[in-house]
Design a protein around this nucleic acid. Structure first.
Lengths: 136, 136
DNA sequence: GAAGATTGAGGTGTCAATCTTC
DNA sequence: GAAGATTGACACCTCAATCTTC
């Protein structure tokens, strides 16, 4: 189910914009930030992505003009990623349709109790994964 | 949650065998078949994979000696995929640890009611996806 | 023309190695 | 040495085009 829902949502995104699903979540994270920009490692932590994944993906998005990298004065190792005007335009084009599709295909199909149980399940399993990784 | 669980299960697979997650599901499907082989398009339907994905992946698995392609006498367009001895050895090495991890990280963490709700949710959302795709 | 399968190109994700700065 | 980031190689997935056989 998760796989098919995911493909369908990606299909809608592609129809409304030039964004892939990973592009979309990056732009949502950045545009939600008060400054509209973020360190690369912060973005990675927020999305649960590996360092190199973040780096590769931001490189591709930079080439397409969706985001731009900026130097970080306080830590010369690091860099900021900021949304460009083009990035804003794309996310504004994509967001309504995406939110709509999520409601139509997922949230609106479920009742309050089901959503509640889903939340608990996610919490429980994530906790189990934490234990596993920290050498449980 | 789904993403992190998936990565963790892939990690366990890699530790116990030389199989990726896609390799694993292919071998499970093939070894579950009474004949131990299947037409490519049947495998695709069973796994919900696109044609070219099946073709590409079976090519890679063939190169690594996990499966082998056989001609189909009754339909000269088509081909069978069959598990090799090496494929059997790998799946036997991987399966117990994988089943264990799924229980430890997922099934055993949830109670009967939660599993029940998950089943209903999956059914409901898949039905909504069906409607969407068939032009709802 | 439709169905089963292959191919090539291009985006995506992971791993290991590397580089610079802290 | 550790942290932030990059790179290159390779596996994976999708799309569109193609080929053969039905």
């Amino acid at each position: 189910m998760q796989m098919r829902l995911h493909s369908e949502l990606a299909r809608h995104l592609a129809a409304d914009s030039e964004l892939s699903y990973p592009d979309y979540v990056v732009l949502v994270a950045l545009t939600a930030d008060p400054e509209g920009r973020m360190r690369l490692f912060e973005l990675g932590q927020l999305l649960g992505w590996e360092q190199s994944r973040v780096s590769h993906h931001i490189s591709r998005m930079t080439e397409r003009g969706l985001v731009i990298k900026q130097e970080c004065p306080s830590d010369r190792r690091g860099a900021y990623v900021a949304v460009t005007d083009h990035g804003w335009a794309e996310i504004r084009a994509a967001a309504p349709g995406h939110v709509d599709a999520v409601r139509r295909l997922f949230i609106d199909r479920l009742d309050a109790h089901q959503l509640d149980v889903l939340g608990d399940v996610a919490e429980t399993v994530l906790a189990a994964l934490e234990v596993e990784r920290s050498g449980g």
